[in-house]
Design a protein around this nucleic acid. Sequence first.
DNA 1: CAAAATAAATTGACCGGTCAGTATAAAATG
DNA 2: CATTTTATACTGACCGGTCAATTTATTTTG
Lengths: 197, 197
Amino acid sequence: MAKKAEQRRKQILKAAFQAATEKGYESVTLQEIADYADVSKGVTNYYFKNKSDVFTQLFEWITTRIYEKEAASVGEQETAIGKLEAYIDRVFISPEENKNFYRVYLDFLSQVKNNDSYKEINQKFYENCWSIGREIIHQGLEEEIFEVDDVEQTAISIRCMIDGSLIQWLMRNDDQLHDYYRTTCYESILKILQYKK
Amino acid sequence: MAKKAEQRRKQILKAAFQAATEKGYESVTLQEIADYADVSKGVTNYYFKNKSDVFTQLFEWITTRIYEKEAASVGEQETAIGKLEAYIDRVFISPEENKNFYRVYLDFLSQVKNNDSYKEINQKFYENCWSIGREIIHQGLEEEIFEVDDVEQTAISIRCMIDGSLIQWLMRNDDQLHDYYRTTCYESILKILQYKK
DNA sequence: CAAAATAAATTGACCGGTCAGTATAAAATG
DNA sequence: CATTTTATACTGACCGGTCAATTTATTTTG
């Protein structure tokens, strides 16, 4: 009962994600969401307060999922380099998935200024990302292979580098460059960490 | 005559920029642009093909202007460190100006996927940014204070770091953090350049 | 257990409002 | 007065949200 409702909610969120991926966040209509979900137009407003509510929940859902996957990948590794590699490999997962996520994510970011809920959700996402960075840095310091004086600042830098790289890659819209940007990003982070073999 | 027309065009572009800063790109109406420019709605359609045309020209105009100012600041300096500092100081010019530019810029970026003209304009902007990066790197190599094996890749990394930093700063929406992110960005770039005193 | 009653879920037509673009009128220019 | 420029009114398309009607699922009752 409540389970089926939850299923419907997820179905609509997925449809909204798909629609936003293809049409762009702002221009997605309730009709399009309904079409992608294979339901009629009224359903969305039955399960969600309004269009904005759909997207708020979508934003929360995808950022949480992304973080959980990143954290799980990093957590599996024991060494600092292993963790960093796992992180970068998870972040740069594939051209297709990165395109889907970052297109919608960029749309959300461009809306943060108009929407405090978005801002809060993104803030939480950042904090999660930074915590992954800290985990890697601490491990590297323990192994004495990184030279970092401000852990917090370095964790922030790592995420700047990741987002900056993926956004720049996305804008160039060339799947072939995906590997190049992953490598560039990875090597730059190693330098930021002042990695010594 | 043609001069006055050019003046009107600029007036409308400025109004569109102001309107986009305050209301967001997608939701700006032709009426609002006209209001900000203190003209009637018909004028915008007289000087521009359509709304999209206004924004394409706006995007081109602001990215060119940003680049020119950055290039001028860097060009004034002789030393690698001087150039890099000038670059970062120009990029992180002030919370107010960064907010205005990056908000609109983010809007544009989120539209690049739907608009080949935007993509092209942004590509040109990136190439200009990378050329500034290269100028700094070459100077540092000459002075033998940087250790860079791939100039192109490093120039790309520098811009990733800058955009990543300013976007993250913008999302946190705290003017106080502006200095912090400037410093963080500057120091990270120094590490990417493997700067040795 | 079957029929009836009730509740939950779904549909799609419809409404109010907005906006881009157009047409046309008016004013300025020279 | 003819051409260019600006102002205003209008149109048609579109969209978010509502809601009455219908279908489907669940519960009650005899």
